[in-house]
Amino acid sequence: MKVRAVFFASLREAVDNDVLDLDIDDGASLDDLRRCLASRLDEDQMAAIGGADIRVAVNRRLVHDGEESVLSAGDEVAFMPPVTGG
């Protein structure tokens, strides 16, 4: 199935892409998506998106620590560094 990974701010620069379209197995989890990304990105890039302060959202909803996330076709998975507005 096709899913989309999107990257913001410092991660967009680290990955050198704002969007990566990926083809992963049906029923794949967030961890499976990370494994798929590891085949496209280098070690430094994987370290950047896997940082302790990086938050992940699936279809614009935050995934909480330890939450299991099974993906569906067409899902958009966002990798987000710490936010600041105002």
């Binding site: 410092s10 560094p81 936010v83 507005g85 105002g86």
Partner: peptide, 8 residues
């Protein structure tokens, strides 16, 4: 907004 809003 400074700590929770989704901006970079």
């Amino acid at each position: 907004l400074k700590t929770k809003a989704v901006f970079w």
